[in-house]
């Protein structure tokens, strides 16, 4: 379902070229729960950005449902992200002026779904992440764990093929982090949607169906 082929990414820092990814080959199938761990600076987030189609590789290719994303226009990439990919961020990245419900609803507005359908999907997901009674709260009225759960609902509301999570527990205490991971794992089972989680939090690894380690821009199977 998702594949990367010899993915490399170089950054120019002053006169120096920093090689963040050095030929990453990865395959993710439906229902997978892949955890990629590794130390800071190992290239985890870079890999995730490339898979999320929000950054372009220096060389190599990302294939989503066998479609090479490098050939897609900026507009088509946006459509691909909204239809097939869900994103969960380390800092939750909710829109501060919108309520929990409206944040989760946002991607559905882009898909131009009917109000009824939007209501049905958002209510169901907020229920699933345990926030049914907090729909009207704004992000600043929610705890970190609650915000991340709203972000999870937002990531899943479009029925994506794959959800990408970048350090989803980094800003949460260990109990809340564990709760969030449990929810993600449950949704992975129930929705049969693939998850790729990059983290350096050892607690997260225990939820993995499959785990890879990233070191110096390369993936190592563990």
């Amino acid at each position: 379902m998702l594949e990367t082929v010899n993915l490399t990414k170089d950054y120019q820092v002053g006169q120096e070229t920093v090689r963040a990814l050095r030929g990453v080959n990865l395959a993710v199938s439906q229902g997978d729960f892949l955890v990629v761990n590794g130390p800071s600076g190992s290239g985890k987030t870079t890999l995730l950005n490339l898979i999320a189609c929000i950054d372009a590789p220096t060389s190599g290719e990302v294939l989503i449902e066998e479609m090479a994303v490098s050939k897609l226009s900026e507009g088509r990439l946006a459509e691909l992200r909204r239809e097939k990919i869900g994103l969960i961020f380390q800092t939750f990245n909710l829109i501060p002026v919108l309520s929990a419900y409206e944040n989760a609803e946002y991607p559905l507005l882009l898909l131009k779904l009917s109000r009824l359908e939007r209501q049905r999907r958002v209510n169901a997901l907020l229920e699933e992440v345990g926030l049914a009674d907090m729909q009207k709260r704004r992000p600043d009225e929610l705890s970190g764990g609650q915000r991340q759960r709203v972000a999870i609902a937002r990531a899943l509301v479009t029925n994506p093929k794959i959800v990408l999570a970048d350090e989803p527990t980094a800003n949460l205490d260990s109990d809340t982090g564990a709760q969030v991971m449990q929810i993600m794992r449950r949704l992975n089972e129930e929705h049969k949607v693939a998850f790729v989680v990059v983290t350096h939090d050892p607690v997260v690894t225990q939820y993995a169906k499959r785990m890879l380690r990233m070191r110096d821009g390369k993936l190592v199977e563990t």
């Binding site: 507009g75 459509e79 869900g86 990245n93 829109i95 946002y106 882009l110 937002r154 479009t158």
Partner: peptide
């Protein structure tokens, strides 16, 4: 800025 990055990442087009 980060909000713009977020909405772009979750599929909002440039024109939007």
């Amino acid at each position: 800025m980060r909000e713009i990055g977020t909405i772009r990442a979750i599929g909002t087009k440039r024109s939007q």
